[in-house]
Design a protein around this nucleic acid. Structure first.
Length: 255
DNA sequence: ATGTGTTTATGATTTT
DNA sequence: AAAATCATAAACACAT
């Protein structure tokens, strides 16, 4: 029998759409979000078919990322420099595949105008937020950061900001859902955390400085934490589980 | 220059 | 048959 483990499809094209492949990649990552290059890598690592043809399928993949509302482009955290943005799945997009099987998509995921606008406002706010952070950081000497989870204490939050951080201050919420979410505005993010969840499991430990703790950095981290919380809440009971890529039936929700 | 993203267009395939 | 989904190409902007 054809060895059933490891890179099973060989040179055959796997029966997954690009949307499915991308969803796998994103969902297999610990943070549920990946930059483009790592999505590529996930696919080529597991499916030899895609080791050739590059340029072709990668173009298609990029097309899918920007065209489909189920994929959300999240700006990089300023303390995580790198090439592109991160891509994640929209919290409401988990029922895209019927029964959770990645083989065939059940319904198209399309956001309505208002929802899309809200989300875009959020992301734009975060982007300008990050820009302001970086600008400020550039203006302040001293702190040579870059070291894993740097929390460069000084160097930020020094004097008045030379440029008024101004982003869309629409009180945008991640659309709909019974999910209680905090408004994502710069002001809201800069405020002290209003006790989000009973168990605060922020992997990056917050610095307990009461007064001037790198507000931008904290806010960006807070944003990511909330995004993750939203994702996990949406899909927690059924988590992606697959042991191996050898059988597509393993690519199901909750198995 | 190259990697990322966005967008429009066209044809194939699948679902209903 | 019509509609939805999917694949591919291609033009373009933007940033590094």
């Amino acid at each position: 029998m054809p060895r059933p483990t490891r890179e099973s499809y060989g040179d055959q094209k796997p029966p997954f759409s690009y949307i499915a492949l991308t969803a796998m990649a994103i969902w297999s990552s610990p943070e549920r979000m990946l930059p483009l290059s790592e999505i590529y890598r996930f696919i080529t690592d597991r499916f030899p078919y895609y080791r050739r043809n590059t340029q072709r399928w990668q173009n298609s993949l990029r097309h899918n990322l920007s065209f489909n509302d189920c994929f959300v482009k999240v700006p990089r955290r300023p303390d995580r420099p790198g090439k592109g943005a991160y891509w994640t799945l929209h919290p409401q997009a988990f029922d895209m595949f019927e029964n959770g099987s990645l083989l065939r998509r059940r319904k198209r995921f399309k956001l309505h105008k208002g929802e899309k606008d809200s989300l875009n406002a959020e992301l734009a706010a975060l982007a300008s937020f990050n820009r302001a952070f970086l600008a400020r950081q550039a203006g302040a000497p001293g702190g040579s950061m870059h070291n894993g989870s740097l929390y460069s204490p000084a160097a930020l939050c020094s004097r008045r900001s030379p440029e008024p951080v101004e982003g869309p201050d629409t009180a945008a919420l991640l659309p709909a859902g019974p999910r209680p979410r905090r408004a994502f505005t710069i002001d809201a993010l800069l405020e002290p955390e209003p006790r989000v969840s009973p168990s605060p499991p922020p992997p990056p430990p917050r610095c307990p400085l009461p007064l001037p703790p790198a507000p931008y950095l904290l806010a960006a981290q807070r944003y990511h934490a909330e995004l993750l919380a939203g994702l996990q809440q949406s899909c927690l009971p059924p988590l992606w589980t697959w042991r191996d890529t050898s059988q597509f039936s393993h690519y199901t929700l909750n198995s």
